[in-house]
C-alpha cells in the first residue's frame, strides 16, 4: 500500500498536501483499494466552507458509496473537474491526478489532528 511522503493523513484515509495556506486533499491508496473501481465522485461547490472532519464529498465505486471527510477546516477554492468524466483517476493516481479539491485553510489548529506519513504507515499496520 503506497503512502506518499510529505503529506498529512487522517484515520479515515484522506490525505492533505499543505502548500502555503492551502490544502490539496484526496483519498489514500488504502481507501481507493478498499473501494474498488471508482465510478462517480460527488465534489463540493467552490466557495463552500467545511469544518475539520465534516463530510465534503462522496466517492462511489461499483461496490459502495463512501463519504469523504474534510481533513482540514476551510473553504473550497477549486475542485478537480476532471473527475466528473474520469473518476477512475482516483484509482490510478490517488496522490496526484486523482486529487479531489483545494481548500483554503481557515483554522490551522485543525492540522494538529493529522498524522504524518510515518505515523499513517504505522496506523495502517494496526488495521
Amino acid at each position: 500500500m503506497a503512502v506518499a511522503q510529505g503529506l498529512l493523513y487522517t484515520k479515515d484515509h484522506e490525505w492533505a498536501r499543505i502548500e502555503g495556506g492551502t490544502a490539496t486533499v484526496g483519498i489514500t491508496d488504502y481507501a481507493q483499494e478498499q473501494l474498488g473501481e471508482v465510478v462517480f465522485v460527488e465534489l463540493p461547490k467552490v466557495g463552500k466552507e467545511f469544518g475539520a472532519h465534516k463530510e465534503f464529498a462522496v466517492v462511489e465505486s461499483s461496490k459502495a458509496a463512501s463519504d469523504v471527510f474534510c481533513p482540514v477546516a476551510g473553504k473550497v477554492t477549486e475542485v478537480n473537474t476532471e473527475l466528473e468524466t474520469t473518476p477512475e483517476l482516483v484509482n490510478k493516481d490517488c496522490y496526484g491526478e486523482g486529487w479531489l479539491c483545494k481548500i483554503k485553510i481557515t483554522d490551522k489548529g485543525s492540522l494538529a489532528n493529522l498524522m504524518d506519513a510515518k505515523k499513517y504507515e504505522e496506523y495502517l499496520k494496526t488495521l
Binding site: 465510478v39 462517480f40 460527488e42 462511489e60 461499483s62 458509496a65 466528473e84 468524466t85 474520469t86 473518476p87
Partner: peptide
C-alpha cells in the same frame, strides 16, 4: 455514460 451516478 461517464459522470452518471450509479444506481443502487
Amino acid at each position: 455514460a461517464r459522470g452518471v451516478r450509479p444506481i443502487r
